[in-house]
């Protein structure tokens, strides 16, 4: 029964792990949304772009904000516009259809060809938001009572949903998704990712920078771990600043690019100091915030 589906194999601009590629292909074959979680900066959003590029499909992005309602993704009935029009009497207001504005989800359903729909950062929205989309994502259709129309997807779009785990998603929603957690890249994988962004990087510079980077990530008690995108920015800064590779580990220049929190910077400096002076750090106050 297996009809040959489009197979995602990764793209030139985006390094994809085997596990992730598997998950993408499972989601495409089963026609289910793929829910992507992972640390910030692990390329969750980039994935959808890469899929669209690799399979040569249109990408529709629905950015979710805290105020986004599920209904907005489907359609909005612009009653205010209709009211204006009725007052100036230059439109035929009896035709309600022209006041139905389709949202991103509606756009994806109505498209002739299969599209890639990215629902970005779904956890930003209200707790009930995912539940409101259950039927629509399951059946890929919705009903507009105002015009008595049912919009059904011609081809099931490839739906990629990203989440930063700010809110727990409802179980009923999760059951309908394929789930993948993007683990933080291992050093060799990281090197390949960096090569995509900085193809002509000095080998020694990269080595030293990576070592420092993973050392920082492995520090205990650090509050906001530096991510891939921050490493890429940092490398850019090192190159532009003309820092010699031998100085990176010692001086750690442009540290602000990697560590964004004062506490983390203090922690690192304290740790270094303790190491150089070879004595343990004094116990911090118990309830200090």
């Amino acid at each position: 029964m297996a009809t040959k589906m489009a197979q995602y194999k990764g793209s030139a601009q985006y390094i994809v792990s085997d596990e992730l590629r598997n998950s993408v292909n499972i989601a495409i074959a089963l026609g289910k949304p793929l829910l992507i979680k992972g640390e910030p900066g692990t390329g969750k959003t980039m994935l959808a772009q890469s899929i669209a590029e690799a399979l040569d499909k249109q990408l529709i992005i629905w950015n979710i904000k805290s105020t986004t309602k599920a209904q907005e993704g489907l359609y909005v009935y612009d009653t205010v516009q209709r009211l204006y029009d009725s007052q100036f009497q230059d439109h035929d207001v009896s035709n309600i259809k022209q006041y139905i504005k389709h949202g991103k989800l509606g756009e994806a359903f109505r498209s002739h060809d299969q599209v890639v729909l990215l629902i970005d950062e779904i956890d930003k929205a209200d707790l009930e938001f995912p539940n409101d989309l259950l039927w629509e994502l399951d059946q890929m259709s919705y009903y507009i009572p105002e015009t008595k129309e049912t919009i059904t997807a011609r081809t099931r779009p490839i739906v990629i949903i990203t989440s930063n785990a700010e809110k727990e998603l409802p179980d009923a929603f999760l059951r309908r998704c394929i789930f993948h957690y993007i683990a933080f890249p291992e050093p060799d994988e990281m090197e390949r990712i960096i090569r995509v962004h900085h193809p002509n990087l000095d080998k020694r510079l990269l080595e030293q920078a990576m070592e420092t980077f993973y050392m920082l990530r492995n520090l205990n008690n650090i509050q906001k771990k530096p991510s891939t995108s921050e490493l890429i920015d940092w490398l850019q800064a090192l190159v532009v600043g003309g820092i010699s590779p031998s100085k990176i580990k010692q001086d750690m220049p442009f540290l602000g690019v990697l560590l964004k929190k004062n506490e983390d910077l203090d922690l690192l400096l304290n740790g270094l100091q303790a190491k150089t002076q070879n004595r343990s750090k004094p116990r911090s106050s118990m309830w200090g915030r």
Partner: peptide, 12 residues
Amino acid sequence: YYLCRALLVKTE
């Protein structure tokens, strides 16, 4: 293994 995990496990 990966198929099972993608389909059956919904949180890391």
